[in-house]
Structures are given as C-alpha cells and as structure tokens.
C-alpha cells in the first residue's frame, strides 16, 4: 500500500509530461496523468478523473494535483462521486507533483503528509 498521485491538466500531453518529470523522483509511486475534454481538445472531464483516482489508489488514498479553473472543479466533482479517499493539493501542478512524488516514497507517508509536502511547493521561489 502507498499513497497514489493523479495529475490533472487541461492538456493530456501536459499531464503526461508532468508525470514524466515527477516519476523521476517518485520511486515506485503510482502517478496517473489525466486531461483533455474527451473529444481530443483542451479541457477536463470528471469521469476521466474518477477513473484515474481508482487507477492510482492502492488503499492509502490519492493526492490530486490540478492546473487551472475547471480542472479544480472537475476534480472536486470526481472526488465527491468516487469511493477513493482523495484530496486536492493547493499547489502549483508541476512543482507540487514533484514534491508529492518524493513524499509518497516515504514508508510513513499518509494522504495528509503527501498533500502537505505538495503544498509546500507553493512557496518555491524561482529567482
């Protein structure tokens, strides 16, 4: 059992790219990428996010990283309708995914410890 991650972006390719970066630091953490409007365009769909939550969950819950606006709302809807114990991290999507991936490799990782670590990414200065 371990905490899983889901990365939600308006662009499926962006989500996959962020997962690619985060996985470098994430050991064997399960990280699912989800994005796109389901019709090949930019957007997010709650059903797809719900499926990603199930795929990422191994019983310890899932921390969700989101990009903008409707990704947040659709992730909220997906969490409400899903049986998976999941929480959205209030963090920038890429930096938060990297922090969460690192935190999830800890043997004592919990849903809240991974979420907190992801949210610490909000304070990262670039210059």
């Amino acid at each position: 059992m371990s905490v899983g991650l889901v990365v939600v972006s308006h662009s499926e390719r962006a989500a996959e790219g962020i997962v690619e970066v985060a996985a470098e630091m994430g050991g064997d953490t399960t990280i699912e990428a989800v994005g796109g409007d389901g019709h090949g365009g930019i957007g997010t769909v709650p059903g797809d996010i719900e499926a990603a939550l199930s795929a990422a969950d191994s019983g310890d819950g899932v921390v969700v990283l989101v990009d903008l606006g409707s990704a947040v709302m659709n992730a909220e809807v997906a969490i409400e309708t899903s049986d998976v114990d999941a929480a959205i991290a209030n963090a920038p999507v890429l930096e938060g995914a990297v922090e969460a991936a690192v935190a999830a490799t800890s043997p004592s990782a919990t849903l809240s410890s991974v979420r907190e670590q992801a949210e610490s990414a909000a304070d990262v200065d670039k210059v």
């Binding site: 997010t44 769909v45 709650p46 409707s70 709302m73 809807v77």
Partner: peptide, 12 residues
C-alpha cells in the same frame, strides 16, 4: 451535461 459539456460549465 457534466460528462459532455467540458470546461467549468460541466460541473457548474
């Protein structure tokens, strides 16, 4: 509507 509209309008 939630599944098909997309964007913020779907959940709203």
């Amino acid at each position: 509507v939630m599944a098909e509209v997309g964007g913020a309008a779907g959940p709203l």
